[in-house]
Design a binder for these strands. Structure first.
Lengths: 344, 344
DNA sequence: CTGAAAGCGCTTACAG
DNA sequence: CTGAAAGCGCTTACAG
């Protein structure tokens, strides 16, 4: 695969220096693209690297300098929205010399902290955390030691950047749309876990937007928030809860597409049609929501763009920026056939 | 985040040894869980590690020994089937001391080779490649240097293990099901890319199974293979091609769910209902296929189990096994409402 | 069973 | 601008 020195040894920077007839420090300077080396030396070293098919060992570089590795923490690899984000991250990083590696963090704050530690142990140069469930103080502590960007969390923050959609606006888009169709009994299904009591998390911003929009339309009396995990199973449970009610909502704003899909399934199983009996709107505009047979009305928060932006901010931070930046992307509503005027 | 020695230095194995009153080599032996250290020394070193909140630096360990890092190459992070696999891998690796990191390899053999090199540069202890597009000779060359398992590829192979579903059987399940419903004009949509001419790849095994089953039912004359990328767009193109035909199939076996979803969308856009005008069956039984409004008949190849198995084989190989193992998992058909008896 | 020393492949001051 | 030397945090023979 890679050229070997005699004896099967890996080609090292020493071999490169010897082949080019210079010192290893000069070879190192060229490798790092640093200033202070003559054009002739640079040329000879680069030629030697090509001749020998030299590849620097990231682990060894990490011992003194950088590993050129970026860690991306993801809670649920199966959430299709993360795929959009990751594509954006990979696209922005391509060609920079850095390499992104995705660490599956699991669903709990504890398991995510373990993965973050694993990334630190591997001397990664920067971290992108996608929708972490870790508490604010811990996030600040990590960010004090390594460049970091958090996606799906709002600012302010001391030591790290954030990239999030404008969640309040997103939920207002949904409520406005549903009210425009004639709905009044509109419920919101939010995410809840032990770390949820944090107003910088998207589920709470969306709740705020929902409540605010309901008030604006004079529907204070119909505000109804159901707390369930944002997952297919959580959606199923929410559907069962709605089905068991005497007075049901005519429309439900699910805080995420995965939750909406569980809702659709659960409502159908309970004999409640969509949008006939209950309109359903989701959030994320995942590929599945656009399938003609699903056709879920959903907020798009341009995950791909958020990923690019996060990678961009991280590279900036690795290059030395300290002041924190907090970006908000504008959402828009993809209207489809899972929402319609109420029957009664 | 982590305890620091005075001056903000990271805690090293030297600090641990000093705190325990032993040599660094003894501390290293305890860290690695190696034999040849007294119970008392072991106890004191372990106590010191706890006291100091010591975390070994994976990069430094990698310079001489292992990095305890496993690389998982994935071509398309957005393919929902990979999520199932990755969950299985993560589950099996949890608690072993190894940490899995997922590398986005991109769609081409060249970009995947670059990611594999990046994993090698980081001294990863073992590699799991999921559905790689890399040629057999290159796979063998990589596997000669690092323990490796390939998922979604059939054996035999010299230097690496494989885990695949029984693809021929899976496609036969579909054809048998469709013929049982009364179909005769059954087409198969396969994946095609520049590296596809390799009979150990799943798309070709599925094609073989399809052709064989058609022959078995005396339908040789109706064999029809459409070559399109397995993606939503590829499915759309296949749908357009079918729609343009004078004599259309009454049923289509898509080689993957993502392809089937594109097909469903494209057929609907062309005014062809499913299963009314054309029955559609997919492969992978992803979460989306089970949604009541999608309800796609699909082959399940238990991705979660395949992931676990792959991780299991890799750990075995890291522990020294050289002989290659080739596992085949049994598929089953999840029958849903996207397939029905033909109308005419 | 334990300890002092060398070395993995880089980078970083520090002389020249 | 270039080179010899020390060091990053571990592991690995090799003496004792």
């Amino acid at each position: 695969m890679t050229t070997k020195a005699s004896g099967g040894r890996r080609i090292t920077i020493r071999d490169v220096a010897a082949h080019a007839g210079v010192s290893t420090s000069s070879a190192s300077l060229v490798l790092r693209g640093a200033a202070g080396v003559s054009a002739e030396t640079r040329r000879r070293v680069e030629q030697a690297m090509t001749d020998l098919d030299y590849r620097p060992l990231a682990a060894a570089r990490g011992m003194r300098g950088k590993t050129f590795t970026i860690g991306v923490l993801v809670s649920d690899i199966r959430n299709p929205f993360f795929g959009l984000l990751l594509d954006g991250v990979a696209e922005r990083i391509a060609g920079t010399g850095y390499e992104p590696f995705i660490g599956p963090g699991g669903a709990t704050a504890a398991s995510q902290m373990r993965m973050i530690q694993a990334m630190r142990d591997r001397q990664m140069d920067g971290l992108i955390l996608i929708g972490p469930h870790v508490a604010a103080t811990e996030l600040e502590a990590i960010a004090a030691e390594v460049p970091m960007v958090v996606v799906g969390r709002h600012g302010p923050a001391e030591n790290f950047d954030t990239v999030a959609g404008d969640d309040e606006q997103g939920s207002q888009l949904i409520v406005d749309h549903l009210v425009g169709l004639g709905h009044r009994r509109i419920s919101y299904v939010t995410h809840w876990d032990p770390e949820s009591a944090d107003d910088r998390r998207p589920e709470n911003r969306r709740e705020q937007g929902y409540v605010e929009a309901m008030r604006r339309h004079g529907l204070d009396g119909f505000v109804d928030v159901v707390r369930e995990e944002w997952s297919h199973d959580g959606g199923l449970r929410a559907a069962a809860a709605f089905a068991a009610r005497a007075k049901r909502p005519t429309a439900v704003h699910a805080g995420a597409d995965v939750s909406a899909f569980g809702l659709l399934t659960g409502l159908a199983e309970a004999g409640l049609s969509t949008p006939g009996a209950i309109s359903v709107a989701g959030y994320d505009n995942t590929a599945t929501s656009a399938l003609p047979r699903v056709s879920l009305t959903s907020v798009d928060q341009s995950g791909h763009e958020m990923g690019r932006l996060a990678a961009d901010l991280l590279l900036d931070r690795i290059d030395g920026r300290r002041r924190s930046v907090h970006e908000l992307t504008a959402p828009w509503l993809a209207v489809r056939s899972s929402t319609a005027a109420p029957e009664d």
